[in-house]
Amino acid sequence: MRIAGTERGAPFTLFVDGEEMAAFAGETIATAMLADGRAAMRRDRSGAPRGLFCNMGTCSECLVTLRGDGGARRVRACLTPAAPGLRVETGPAA
């Protein structure tokens, strides 16, 4: 839930596992996902979902895959800014 009374940056959309998601300039990927009710960000070795734990770059539980034209990259969702058109995946690391 985005907190009322805060003026945010410009709105845009990104894609998480192919689904469109709204975000505002300045938000991290983790913020966009949690504001949208998506807590699972990666899968562990058993396939169980995992989500953000520390929100400060320390635990790396929020590693998501960013899919770009040049390939995929694993980034910490809590530190990485959301950006227009970004393609985020929460499946197993490839």
Binding site: M1, R2, I3, T6, R8, E27, T28, T31, L34, A35, G37, A39, A40, M41, D44, A48, P49, R50, G51, L52, F53, C54, N55, M56, C78
Partner: peptide, 25 residues
């Protein structure tokens, strides 16, 4: 404690202070 939705209190607080969301229901 590995279920999505378990987080540190510091994590929750930082979302409120900085990113201005309440990161859950």
């Amino acid at each position: 404690w590995t279920l999505p939705g378990v987080m540190s209190a510091g994590a929750a607080q930082a979302f409120v202070k900085s990113q201005r969301i309440v990161p859950g229901g």
